[in-house]
Amino acid sequence: MNGVGSDASVSLAVPSDGATLNSPYVQWKGSASGVTIEESGTVNEGAGHYHIMVDADPVEPGETIPSDDQHIHYGTGQNNGVLELEPGDHTLHLQVADGKHTAMALTDTVEVTVEDTASLDLSTSVEGSVVEWDVTAENYTIEPSSEGINGNSGHLHAVIDTDHVPVGDVIPSDANHIHYGDGSTSGSIDLAEQLGDAYEPGEHTIHFQVGTGTHRATMVHAHTTVTTE
């Protein structure tokens, strides 16, 4: 179908079949062979984009994949993301469809157990405009972003004086968003230096938010309000 050979295949590299995931914010990563994963909108021979079915059967080839809470489209051509799942047992199907969302016979299935035990504990101290911080993770591993996408791990980002990043979105890198891709779990932030002309002494809100190896946001996070001078 659509110029895809009979030897083409896809797989859910993350999470693995039978995995227990300690957070409802489930990281996924797809792998494809013999088919190009690209942005939706145009039907191109030998190409398509990913969908994940949550506790719903794959769609019959040739049928249009619906868009709802159980049929999640990834039309940007991404090969990874973050799902929000309720605690419990779930069946996930990865399926490719063409640029118009017509299902192909390219699927992979995993069964996972989702728990809600991951958390961050944040402690801070302030001197002048400098915030010293330390994060301890429970039932989650903080590691360098170079480790890639893994089921129960990620790296920290500090989100300053703005809302946390929505789940699955890529966390930006700017004055209000600091990436700790080296796997740091403690450090210091000079808010006057970090925020520049936007800095004023007083109350500041800091979220520490875990991102995946590709900087996609989860809501494994902790936040605090500090008062600087």
Rank of each mutant, 00 (worst) to 15 (best):
L92A: 03
Q95P: 00
T102N: 08
A97W: 00
V130F: 09
V110M: 02
E86R: 13
T141A: 13
D116I: 09
Y140R: 07
A103Q: 02
Y140D: 00
S123G: 12
D89L: 10
E127K: 15
I142N: 00
T109F: 07
N139C: 11
E84V: 13
H101Y: 06
S123T: 14
E143V: 12
S146P: 06
V130M: 04
G128H: 10
E84A: 10
Q95F: 03
N139A: 12
S119K: 08
S146C: 09
V131I: 13
H101T: 05
D108L: 05
L85S: 04
V96E: 01
H101I: 04
D134T: 14
E143A: 10
A118D: 03
H90T: 04
Y140W: 15
V135A: 01
V135T: 01
T107P: 04
L122H: 03
N139Q: 11
E111C: 11
D116G: 08
T141H: 14
Y140K: 07
D116H: 11
H90W: 07
T113A: 06
D116C: 09
V126G: 06
L94V: 07
D98G: 06
D89I: 13
T102P: 06
N139R: 11
K100W: 14
Q95L: 02
A97P: 03
S119R: 07
V114N: 01
V110L: 02
A137H: 00
T109V: 10
H93W: 14
Q95K: 00
H90L: 05
S145G: 13
S145K: 14
D121S: 14
L106C: 03
